[in-house]
Computed example of a mutant assay.
Amino acid sequence: MSDMFVEKFRALVPQYLQEPWQEADGIAQADLDDVFAELNITVPQALREFLHAVGNCEELMEAYYYFWDPEELEIQDGYLLFLEDEDEAYTWGILADQADVPDPIVWRRNNATGAWINEEGTFSEFVFDMLDWVFTDDDD
């Protein structure tokens, strides 16, 4: 399977952190394969490539919300969970039965009620929009 998103995700480092992307910012594909095999989960291509590109870049992985490390990914309520806010009021996920879709739709769970709502964007759209929101100064 060819990379569809890796270069776009790697470009987030210079775009928002004003430094060049380095191999240490990402996680090796073989390491991801091992973790996902141990967890016995299938991870959509966009999420896998995001972790491969910037999974070790704390400034992006913990920018306002917290992307989960690969070994923390889990399936609950039929969703593959990958992100939460700092207050743990909301968790974001992807329908687990759509893990074979390269760039699936993101859903958000209200942790108090357990209700899920469609974020109306794919994983890659969600990531780019979220980071743009986090790193864009309202005064600009």
Rank of each mutant, 00 (worst) to 15 (best):
M1P: 09
M1E: 10
M1T: 12
D3K: 10
V6M: 07
V6G: 00
E7T: 15
E7H: 15
R10N: 07
R10A: 05
R10T: 05
L12D: 06
L12F: 09
L12C: 06
Q15I: 00
L17V: 06
L17K: 05
Q18E: 15
P20A: 13
P20W: 01
P20Y: 02
W21S: 08
Q22D: 03
E23N: 12
A24L: 04
I27H: 02
I27G: 04
Q29W: 10
L32C: 13
L32D: 10
D33W: 02
D34Q: 14
V35K: 07
F36Y: 15
A37G: 14
A37R: 14
E38L: 13
L39G: 03
L39P: 09
I41W: 04
I41S: 07
V43P: 12
V43L: 11
V43K: 07
L47M: 15
L47F: 09
L47T: 12
L47W: 12
L47S: 05
E49F: 01
F50R: 05
L51W: 15
H52G: 02
A53C: 03
A53E: 04
V54N: 11
G55S: 05
C57N: 14
L60A: 03
L60R: 08
L60Q: 08
M61H: 00
E62K: 07
E62L: 13
E62T: 13
E62R: 13
Y66E: 02
Y66K: 06
Y66M: 05
F67H: 11
W68A: 04
D69P: 01
E71A: 12
L73K: 02
D77H: 11
G78S: 11
L80P: 08
L80D: 05
L81T: 10
L81M: 09
L81S: 00
F82Y: 08
L83W: 01
E84D: 12
E86F: 09
Y90M: 10
T91F: 06
W92I: 00
G93V: 08
L95P: 06
A96N: 14
D97G: 01
Q98T: 13
A99H: 06
D100G: 01
V101K: 05
D103S: 04
P104I: 12
V106H: 06
V106E: 06
W107A: 04
W107L: 02
W107C: 06
R108S: 11
R108E: 14
R108Y: 00
R109W: 01
R109I: 01
N110A: 08
N110F: 09
N110P: 02
N110T: 11
N111Q: 09
N111H: 01
N111F: 00
A112W: 12
A112L: 14
A112P: 01
G114I: 08
A115F: 14
I117P: 00
E120Y: 12
G121C: 15
T122R: 03
T122F: 13
T122E: 06
T122L: 07
F123L: 08
F123Y: 11
S124L: 04
E125I: 05
F126P: 04
V127K: 00
V127H: 05
F128Q: 13
D129F: 08
L131A: 09
L131R: 06
D132E: 15
W133R: 01
V134Q: 01
F135K: 07
T136S: 15
D137S: 05
D138C: 02
D139P: 00
D139A: 14
D140W: 08
D140S: 12
